[in-house]
């Protein structure tokens, strides 16, 4: 069994208003896609553009290049310009500082109806860089061609951690929006009020259990408390508090390192798990 190394103590107080929320069943129907598109100032219809039905999403593309895609499992959506999103256009080299980017992103979201990312905080700003090199030359040709701003959902004054619970706004060199990713599951009702938190030590035991079949040494580098929301392709029934445990592998005899994150329930009265365990695989027949 893996060795879990915890070098400091973690303790969290129960926030005043922590809940376990029942989430709404995602609606990836064409009607909902049209509704979202209209919030984004796109009039979606077969007379204008085209709909595509995929096993994992529905999408609409209009002739000017904007695409809206809604995911069946999560209800999250992506609004992107097929030619301009993350593209290197016109040899641009822009300077957008973090404050500028945050302001641009907030203004962009305010333009759209539908209360996108209401109740959020800026988590980070990243800049999109490009570079190229010729063989035999170490000359650097680095340029910055855009930026993206991630808003993190805040619920009951508690941050939402994970791939979900976020809105990301993308800009190009001209400071124009080229995409918005919105993965923000809708709440249906309160399933329960959180009455007390589990001990962090018990949660770390859960993490150890997840690594029960593994070998190696894993150092806990941080533990956070927050709601935990899964990714685009994940079904999720409840949104509930979690301890988010950051790990880093590092046994002395191993020259490789890798980080990982495991989320485990934080509420004593949690409902099920907050992060599914990786699928167990049958051993492959020995290759000859």
């Amino acid at each position: 069994m893996a060795e879990l190394v915890v070098s400091r103590e973690y303790e969290f107080e129960l926030p005043a208003n922590a809940h376990i929320y029942q989430l709404r069943t995602p609606d990836a129907s064409r009607d909902n896609l049209i509704r979202i598109a209209s919030h984004l100032s796109i009039r979606a219809g077969l007379d204008v553009g085209s709909f595509t039905e995929h096993a994992r999403w529905n999408s609409y593309q209009e002739p000017a290049g904007w695409t809206v895609r809604i995911f069946r499992s999560s209800g999250g959506w992506q609004y992107r310009h097929s030619l301009r999103w993350q593209a290197d256009l016109a040899g641009a080299n822009v300077s957008i500082d973090d404050n500028d980017a945050q302001q641009l992103a907030a203004e962009a979201l305010a333009q759209f109806s539908g209360d996108i990312a209401t109740g959020s905080e800026v988590q980070w700003v990243e800049h999109l860089h490009v570079n190229h090199a010729e063989r035999g030359s170490a000359e650097s040709n680095e340029r910055t061609i855009g930026a993206r701003v991630r808003f993190r959902r805040i619920l009951d004054n508690i941050p939402v951690e994970g791939t979900g619970g976020s809105t990301v706004v993308y800009f190009d060199h001209a400071r124009e929006v080229t995409g918005i990713d919105h993965l923000w599951r809708e709440i249906d009702s309160v399933a329960a009020r959180v009455t007390s938190l589990r001990r962090v030590g018990d949660a770390l035991d859960d993490v150890g259990q997840r690594y029960r079949a593994s070998r190696g040494r894993f150092e806990v580098t941080d533990v956070r408390f927050g709601y935990f929301e899964l990714g685009w392709y994940d079904e999720q029934e409840y949104l509930q508090p979690a301890y988010i445990v950051f790990l880093r592998s590092g046994s002395p005899e191993s020259k490789s390192r890798m980080r990982s994150v495991v989320a485990v329930p934080a509420a004593e009265n949690h409902i099920g798990e907050v992060q599914p365990e990786p699928r167990r695989r049958d051993s492959q027949p020995v290759r000859t």
Partner: peptide
Amino acid sequence: NNFSAPCVNDDLVNRAECAEGFLDAMTA
């Protein structure tokens, strides 16, 4: 995901999930 002597490394958990998730999406 899993290492054993003499090839020593810390085990990983999600490597199969990533690789086979990619393969499944492509074959789908």
